[in-house]
Amino acid sequence: MHPAYSVILFTTSSGAGYGLLALIGLAGATHGAASSIEFAITTLVVALGLISVGLLSSTFHLGHPERAWRAFSQWRSSWLSREGIVAVATFVPALLFAYSWTFSNQAVALWGILSAVMCAATVYCTGMIYASLPTIRQWRHPLVVPVYLVFALATGATLLLALAHVFARGQLIQVIFSAAGLASALVLKLVYWRSIDSTKPSYTIEQATGIGHLGAVRQLELPHTAQNYLMQEMGYRIGRKHAEKLRRIVVLSLTGGLLFCLLTLVLPSALATAAAILAVLWAAIGAVTERWLFFAEAEHVVNLYYGKPAA
């Protein structure tokens, strides 16, 4: 699949935002009103900002962004619709939580937990958009939704860690969340890759064309010598070597992020802040690369009609 930057930006940025929001929601739920208003406002702005930027960027790739509101209508069957609804709905508890957490201190736990749940639900829906498509083996995979959730958590937690350090409020629990998040992202991803590499493609060109009884099938002529939408959108192919390199980058950045998270425990505070910020950077690189690969490595069944022997 063609890795569209708007979609990559959307899923990674909103993922991190939801992760962060969920965590502070939980923090609010467990600790009550924020002890530092500056810190609270900053984290809220960052979380909601990332979410908003992500949501906005998701409309960039729409042909008719002005009609985006219509996407709320098909919650009964469409994960995209559900995602849109949940994403927007999340703003309600999120804003209430923001208010209660910073100013009113009323029902912080309620709004915090609700926000966290909605965040998880949104990311879950995002994951399901992909995981529900039967046309792409690499997406219709049990680990896709967990990966989305864990990446949201990991990037959100790392961000929280960094913000906390900036406001000199670093805590062990933040390191636990971010390090555990990054580590499980890493593990899930490794398991996922191993799984998609080892499972056989689901369909063959013979099945797609139904003429396999005549013998092995291969493409003779494309319908057009010119390009088309399908070839550009679904026909994106990444070289094996290139993919391996990028996978290594994901592994390295996640590991790097993890190490910097852990370093915050041992470094003096100024350096710890720097390490936490570096952890965010590494995690971000890892997440964006992972998301890019998530698309680039996905093989759509339609490629069978365009000559791929199996997909």
Binding site: R67, T135, M234, V302, Y305
Partner: peptide, 24 residues
């Protein structure tokens, strides 16, 4: 009413949907 999100084209195994990006 189509917003041009392209998701349906991803969901079609048969390559039967083509996005007209000029028309959105």
């Amino acid at each position: 009413t189509c917003i041009g999100c392209k998701l349906c084209s991803w969901a079609c195994p048969y390559g039967a949907r083509e996005y007209d990006h000029n028309h959105g």
